[in-house]
């Protein structure tokens, strides 16, 4: 009985709505699907992580509220500060180096007509390669003789072999190199697209006025590329702040080593959560990472977008 009554009632209610209201209702009913989906699998777990960071949950026994204990422990943990520094080293070295290289490549590649597509594809291939596979290949490149290719070249020239991944100073740049190399293709493509979007009439006018190439680059190309640069800076910064695969796989038996000199925050979170099963502490680290990512992105948007 109720089954027949309901549609009639709702049909009448539906008829009473104006066209505009109906449209809004339709729009929201479609939007509701992704919103519900994201709330359930993205936002809800995020909030859970925030809540977890105030507990001492270790997976094996029920969680108990410990207040700010995890955050206090984090601030007093020398490992956290070391890892914090490493994370920023990845960002501070990785982002400018990768942007300068990719801009240079894009700037000159843009002028190359001969086999342009092929060369561009060559730059893009590393981006398509699995980070794990790449990390393992590079890891072998860095080995001491007789198998490491870099050290083989060095000894061939009579230069003493370098420890690379087994050094507390060389390991971080050594790990960063393949990460920069892998991201290059993507950045080159974006830069080329940005360069192509600049109207050629500006360049023509400048050339008629006899302006040098360097001035053109400084006064026309770079200012007009600003939106592209902003996008790439934010995008690659987030990437370097979240670096994990390369680090984890290149020092597989001592991840983040030697002596934690290559350990980024994400790896510390992983180890705290899934090796030591210290979920509450790991959640606190996650919250900190979230805040760092948020702050860095906001600052960059602010600095680069205005003016």
């Amino acid at each position: 009985m109720t089954a027949t009554a309901l549609p009639a009632k709702s049909a009448r209610a539906w008829d009473r709505l104006s066209l505009r209201q109906k449209r809004v209702l339709w729009a929201w009913s479609f939007l509701a699907v992704p919103i519900l989906f994201y709330s359930a699998i993205r936002f809800w777990p995020t909030l859970e992580a925030f809540a977890l960071s105030f507990t001492n949950w270790n997976l094996l026994r029920p969680a108990a509220f410990v207040g700010l204990e995890n955050y206090k422990r984090l601030l007093a943990d020398p490992l956290f500060w070391q890892v914090f520094g490493n994370t920023f080293l990845y960002l501070i070295i990785g982002t400018p180096v990768s942007l300068v290289i990719s801009f240079t490549v894009a700037y000159y590649l843009d002028r190359v007509r001969f086999m342009h597509g092929f060369i561009r594809a060559l730059y893009f291939i590393p981006f398509l390669t699995t980070a794990v596979a790449m990390a393992w290949v590079w890891r072998w490149f860095y080995q001491p003789v007789p198998i490491g290719i870099f050290n083989a070249i060095l000894t061939w020239f009579g230069i003493p072999q370098q420890p690379f991944l087994r050094s507390t100073t060389q390991a971080l740049p050594a790990i960063l190199a393949p990460a920069v190399w892998a991201g290059l293709g993507f950045q080159v493509i974006i830069f080329i697209a940005g360069l192509r979007a600049i109207p050629t009439s500006y360049y023509e006018a400048a050339r008629i006025d006899g302006v040098s190439e360097f001035t053109i680059l400084r006064r026309i190309t770079l200012p007009l590329l600003k939106p592209t640069i902003v996008f790439l800076v934010v995008f690659s910064s987030i990437g370097f702040l979240r670096i994990f695969d390369q680090v984890y796989n290149m020092n597989f038996n001592d991840p983040g080593g030697p002596l934690n000199t290559t350990k980024p925050l994400v790896l510390m979170i992983y180890q705290t959560a899934f090796k030591s099963l210290d979920m509450g502490y790991a959640a606190a680290q996650t919250v900190v990472l979230f805040l760092i990512l948020l702050a860095v992105s906001l600052i960059q948007l602010r600095i680069l977008k205005d003016r």
Binding site: G257, K275, S276
Partner: peptide, 20 residues
């Protein structure tokens, strides 16, 4: 109590001597 962490302590101990 935490094999991975205790092993890491030993790894780091030797690395401090050999590398640093």
């Amino acid at each position: 109590v935490d094999e991975a962490a205790q092993r890491q302590v030993a790894i780091d101990m030797v690395n401090r001597v050999l590398i640093q």
